[in-house]
Computed example of a mutant assay.
Amino acid sequence: MSDFLKLEKLTLNYGGPTPAVENLDFSMQASELVALLGPSGCGKTTTMRAIAGLMKPASGTIMLDNRDITRVPANKRGVGLVFQSYALFPHLSVFENVAFGLRLARVSSADIKRRVDAVLASVGLSHLADRQPRELSGGQQQRVALARSIVVEPKLLLLDEPLSNLDARLRLEMRSELSRLQDELGITMIYVTHDQAEALALADRIIVMREGRIEQSGTPEDIYERPVSIFVANFMGFENCFELTGGKLKGIAPAGFETGSAAGIAWRPHAVLLGQGAHKGTVVGASYLGQVVEYLLSTPLGDIKAEALASAPRHGMGEEIAFDLPQAGAVLLARR
């Protein structure tokens, strides 16, 4: 099966001495939803802009559906783009916002009505077709932006941090909406985000980017459960990440298991055992999070974050407690 989208040796530069993206190789299949995940400045949005035709590569190629689009103008690529800011026309109705691209393409009026009506129904906005953007909620405006991109039937849909302006409840609703639409329509999507939960919930595959290159690529389960580096582990919630030197952590061999040639080791806060173990730490922070209490311990190994059920006995500030870093919850990391 041939790749639907393929980037080869893609280098992108804003004019400085260091490329924003350098020699990037990446491919995806039709109907796949891939999340580009990483912190600000890692190159994910820059990569998306190049695919969309909004940025000219310094070198490399972009192939889409067996066609070289590296130098093809943005409006001739068959690529849709959903912006973080929605970018709706404030003076146009919902219907006309969605119809805008079709009118530019000189689609017949009958076809426009049929296609716009269908896509508004798919995003649950048929009853709001005559309203203007200022009369809509943030979630409804995001649905309009999504409908406007879908209605032109793009080969590839790019979404740039599309939910970052919404509150937590609306983000959850829109994640479900995007998943449903992707399943129903089979659209090939690239979703750019710095939010781990969004990437895990939506993507078939996650690509974690770091300083303009791919740090790790895999299924959500791979990225969440089996990070390959300290960088990915930190980014995916392993808040207790340590470098190993000669198989030891701060001169101490982790009890009960071999570290081999690993460069690092990590535990999530819930994997740290409190109240037992060979290590001791002093409570320097405690946060009630509902079902759990998160503790910050100052220890000879460095700061340790741990969690305990809120129903368990509480530990006070300045209290010294024993803790353990068990093998069962550890992940060995191949590189830094």
Rank of each mutant, 00 (worst) to 15 (best):
M48D: 00
N240K: 14
Y295M: 04
D130Y: 08
S311F: 14
D183W: 07
V232E: 06
L332N: 07
A308Y: 02
V79P: 00
V72W: 01
R175M: 04
E243W: 10
G275H: 09
M317R: 13
S179K: 13
V272A: 07
P19T: 10
G139R: 05
G302C: 12
M63V: 08
F231A: 06
V293I: 13
G237I: 10
T282P: 02
E22C: 12
F26Q: 01
S137P: 05
R134P: 02
D303T: 15
L102F: 07
A50Q: 05
L64I: 03
L157N: 03
A87T: 10
L200T: 04
Q29A: 14
T18I: 15
R336Y: 10
G281A: 07
P17M: 13
K305V: 13
N240P: 11
T188E: 03
P313W: 08
L289E: 13
L136W: 04
D303Y: 14
Q29T: 12
I206Q: 02
E96R: 14
H194T: 08
G316I: 06
K6G: 00
G43Y: 01
L36C: 03
A121Y: 06
R103G: 06
A147F: 05
E319M: 12
R71E: 10
L166Y: 10
P19S: 11
T18Y: 10
R268V: 05
R148F: 08
V72I: 13
S149Y: 01
A203E: 00
E161A: 07
T299N: 09
L289A: 11
P133A: 07
M236D: 09
E239V: 11
G256K: 06
A52Y: 06
I304G: 04
R226T: 13
L64T: 01
Y14G: 10
V272N: 05
L297C: 07
K76L: 01
L333F: 11
D130C: 08
I252K: 13
T282I: 14
N23S: 13
L200K: 04
E294G: 02
S109K: 15
E8G: 01
G38Q: 04
A118G: 04
A233Q: 09
A110N: 09
G246K: 10
M189S: 11
I112F: 01
